[in-house]
Write a protein that binds this DNA or RNA. Structure first.
Lengths: 211, 211
DNA sequence: CAGCATCCGCTTTGATACTG
DNA sequence: CAGTATCAAAGCGGATGCTG
């Protein structure tokens, strides 16, 4: 990226991470840890492969990403965030939090990966009754199932099915996320095709307080 | 900007504010409040005027900026952040904080405006002895003078000269900021041409604790 | 198959000039 | 003051090809 040539800490930050796709690559590495090239490409639907290669080199030059060889059985290069790269976490969280309301508008064309739920869930949901026994909620949004877990007052996203879920939500990503965050009313979502099996109080337990 | 077409809150945020120059326009409006077009252009050295016009229209369409007519005596349009635009403050702070270490490398070519110091000062400096009488430090970095003020344990940037400054720093932006943040040693900075008039303890009072 | 590099058409940006 | 208009240069997207 061409530098802004301004002696300002925000402009300097954008000189490094302001390029198209750069912060989304950091997102993938933050959410999934060390990744192979092909894992990154899969987590970044729409990126041109030459751009991914370019950005990874730039991130390496800037000291945000390091490349390492995977342990012997696997013949692959792994890309991993450096400590300086991980320091971007709070900035990514702030941006992702700001973006949550933008998830309300639907766009069926948009790509989706289950681990992307991590931001809205971590940043927006909370266990309102942390003293009670923990619960899990299973989410089925098309590809592999995910589930939520209450941990110490927070709500976490995990891969795979839940063992004894208090509820199971099946529908489009927007329906499922909409119902979880309260952006979408459960009755409306059901009318739109969402399937909710289980107790409704499980949902209310983790929803943010209504404004 | 072309959308990333990903159902992810970070990607959605970047769809809105990921374009080149966009966040710097938000910076200007955050730091200076409502601005005229020409004020913005002055605070964004390097921007092409057609791009500024384009971005302002996009920001208006996205609901982050509103345009209003200044009160009668002045014949001018003012651009102001909406509430939704102001919600970007914490994201800007996080990015600007991440960028502070990047201010250590020098580049004499870079443009500078005094109010850009607000980020590093607000986010990095603090009054270590808030119970003592407040002090001011004057900064002269080329154009108009600025000064720092201790307020309730924080350090604030103000325009104009100080009345009875505990110290006056005169030098390049990087020298002055480097000495304030401790990135640059006072003796080294003096050797490089910085002029420091006043008590050194004023400096130590607001510097961050050394790591 | 993993990890790129090349080519090409299209879009965005930058620099400058001009206008109500 | 607050923009348009114009045009060259840079960046991006998509397809494809290459190499260990």
């Amino acid at each position: 990226m061409r530098s802004y040539r301004q002696y300002c800490s925000l402009a300097r930050a954008l000189d490094v991470i302001g390029d198209r796709w750069t912060l989304l690559i950091v997102r993938e590495l933050l959410l999934r840890g060390a990744c192979r090239y092909t894992d990154l490409r899969d987590g970044l639907p729409g990126i041109a492969t030459n751009l991914l290669a370019d950005r990874l080199r730039e991130l390496e030059d800037a000291g945000l990403v390091m490349r390492e060889d995977a342990p012997p059985p696997i013949a692959a290069t792994l890309f991993r965030l450096t400590a300086r790269g991980e320091e971007l976490e709070s900035a990514l969280h702030a941006l992702a939090r700001w973006g949550i309301p933008l998830m309300a508008d639907d766009d069926a064309q948009d790509a989706f990966r289950g681990h992307w739920l991590t931001f809205p869930v971590d940043l927006y949901l909370a266990d309102r009754t942390p003293d009670r026994a923990p619960i899990t909620i299973e989410l089925r949004t098309g590809e592999e199932p995910m589930h939520l877990e209450t941990v110490d007052g927070a709500v976490k996203v995990r891969h795979g099915s839940a063992e004894r879920p208090a509820a199971v939500l099946t529908g489009t990503p927007r329906q499922v996320l909409g119902v979880l965050t309260g952006m979408l009313d459960l009755a409306d979502a059901r009318a739109g095709g969402l399937r909710y099996d289980g107790e409704e109080k499980a949902l209310r337990r983790i929803q943010p307080p209504s404004p």
